[in-house]
Design a protein around this nucleic acid. Structure first.
Lengths: 208, 208
DNA sequence: TAACCCATGTAAACGGTTACATGATTCG
DNA sequence: CGAATCATGTAACCGTTTACATGGGTTA
């Protein structure tokens, strides 16, 4: 029951239509809480019934009308109440981790290929976040109070992606050399401390 | 539709009853795929219908009978097939991140308190994983082929927890000093490179 | 003219969570 | 004697996903 709160946060930042929200959930907020438009429209309808948001219809000429939502006072109260309650610990659910664990019961090479694909996905996402960060927060000393939470969340994204990327690399080192028994020399993995440079594709690794 | 696969992996490792699986999902596998016993029993029933697992009843004297599940050949095929298909990218869904982002619309101090609580949770989980790692894999050079996937997943857990812990610390630095405008001096956060030592509670920080 | 964007929805199915239920055994 | 453990389940609810539906406007 918390798409509700994600919507309240997004609408508190700026009023929007269901369609606008859908696009926001394709980027930005959506990197930390995904939702499809069907779900957004339905929850929005419920929230309107409950008085958490209010709608105003803007006639569009030619194109369909836009139903623009704003947070009501009741919605603002609910938002404040929600920030005060402790966030329940997130239930981890990683099909990927389960698959790695079960790789010896299937096709190990296919799983390694999967790790490689993931690795590149994380590298791409990391590059995206870092570009975003450099662009929007060039001067870390000048962070306004309003910017700080946004910046903090972005930093979380960066850390998560970097962590996943490094994990994938560690696994590739662990699995790609099945013959030779060189142990992982440094399990703490100090690579990519400066991640800008070496974040290209890793597919043709060690073959060239 | 993938608790199924988690159960197949777990049963491929060792046959078990629903109750056994429930306990496994409270630890070990459960750190990467959580499930309650109700769900496990239901999916197990369906999988039995579909012929992916087979049941054998062991009469318990006094206590209830144990229904012990094993993976069938069909189940093993399904497991192999599953490892071959690319894992869909995980939909991130972090209520915590959303709350941090929306903190300025609520009670910032309460959210900071929440971050502190999380930080300690991650420190605890990290310590648990690292003890587990040190105990089960004391000699990284002697990792058997069967151990490697298990080890890899555990390493993922360690990396994730450490990453979250460091992120929380970064946020506390960012938010705990609202008056003074000292910027986060090193946003890359090189602390806790050797995480054994400084992973105590952080609650009384800067007050003593 | 075909494909895509704008903009909104309905309906069905699936998966996960919470609450309820049973009953014997063992431990403090 | 009460609580926890062993061991299994049912039922209702809620949130998410996927498929289907509509219809005008813009762009290649």
């Amino acid at each position: 029951m918390s798409l509700q709160h994600a919507l309240l946060v997004s609408l508190a930042e700026c009023e929007a239509s269901g369609y606008d929200l859908t696009r926001r959930f394709d980027r930005s907020l959506g990197f930390f809480w995904s939702a499809t438009h069907q779900q957004i429209y339905r929850v929005l309808a419920r929230m309107t019934d409950e008085g958490l948001v209010a709608v105003r219809t803007e006639a569009g000429q030619g194109r369909p009308d836009r139903r623009v939502y704003t947070v009501t006072e009741l919605g603002r109260d609910e938002l404040a109440r929600w920030t005060q309650e402790p966030t329940p610990s997130e239930t981890v659910r990683s099909e990927f981790a389960v698959k790695v664990r079960g790789m010896r019961f299937g096709d190990p090479d296919a799983v390694i290929e999967d790790i490689r694909r993931r690795r590149d996905d994380h590298a791409r996402q990391l590059a995206y976040y870092e570009a975003n960060c450099a662009k929007n927060y060039p001067d870390l000393g000048a962070l306004s109070a309003d910017d700080r939470p946004l910046f903090a969340v972005l930093r979380g994204g960066i850390r998560t992606e970097r962590s996943m990327l490094e994990w994938c690399d560690e696994m590739l080192d662990l699995f790609e050399s099945p013959g030779d028994d060189t142990p992982p020399t440094d399990a703490t993995g100090a690579r990519y401390e400066t991640p800008e440079a070496p974040v290209a594709s890793r597919t043709p690794r060690r073959t060239a």
